[in-house]
Simulated assay, not measured.
Amino acid sequence: MKPLEGLAVYDDADFYDQEFAARTHDIPFFLGQAVAARGPVLEVACGTGRITLPIARAGVDVTGLDVVPSMLARARRRAEEERLAVEWLEQDCRNICTAKRFDRVFSATNAMQHLHDLDSAVGFLTSARNTLMPGGTLILDVFNPDMAKLSRRPEAPYRHKSVVDRDGTTLDVQATTSYDRSTQVLRFTLDYLRGDVCVRTKKVSMRCFFPEELLALCRLAGLDVVQRCGDYDQSSFTSASPKQILFCRAPLPAPIDL
């Protein structure tokens, strides 16, 4: 497996919380899945608890896993402030070590796309499968590659979004991207601008998983894809869907012949 790449963008957990404070549109989907679970729930790459904590507030037995210490420290602090009982695991998702078994495991918001090589992707899928109860469900959430976006020229920056900084000022985020077809890795350079001054730069690398490829990887890891959606509203997946949300079922024990 290749070393995980580009995780330094998550070192500043407080700014991450500030940057994504307004991102809430995906929470109802994952919260609904967690509440419907027949047992404990695990969020892989939980970050600062943006989704984990709402699940805990609903009274669900939830565990959060992340490999970045600063993100988990922020998540723990937030949980302690609210007196929420959450187990936090500082682990690599390609080798999850826990005696607990889960009815739902999920990886939200493109987190799986930090796994750039085949061994890492299969390692995660296999490790997640092994933490599931028999018949449990792994939910994957990655973007559906858009060829027009992958074809953007590196020398052509574009406005990506705006965020509110910690001091309350607005930062415009300018992005440039380059796509490596040989590795299927899309690289972003994000410049955070206050007026004409760049106050912060992030470099993010995301592995693109194409639809049939992702189905094959799940099958290779011993998972049965039972549903595929195109967005958090659980609409049917099409070539134009912005997301690939897969429901992958762990195998049931083989029947015993008597």
Rank of each mutant, 00 (worst) to 15 (best):
E43I: 10
E155V: 08
F15K: 00
D119W: 07
G32R: 07
F29E: 02
D233M: 11
E19D: 14
L214D: 09
T177V: 05
K149L: 12
M147N: 14
S107T: 08
V62S: 11
A22F: 08
P134C: 06
H25E: 11
D61P: 15
Q33M: 09
K161I: 02
F15P: 00
R50G: 10
L150P: 03
V164L: 13
L89Y: 13
I245V: 14
L186R: 06
C198F: 03
R194N: 10
M133K: 03
V204A: 03
D92V: 06
F209Q: 01
F188T: 09
F209A: 03
R159Q: 12
R166D: 06
L217P: 09
D141E: 07
V44R: 00
V164I: 07
R57Y: 14
G49F: 09
E155N: 11
D119T: 13
S182P: 00
I245S: 11
C97I: 14
L132N: 01
S107Q: 03
L215I: 15
L190K: 11
F210G: 05
F247Y: 04
A22G: 04
T189F: 00
F30S: 04
H114N: 12
F29M: 02
V197Q: 13
L125E: 07
A111F: 13
R129V: 13
L125G: 04
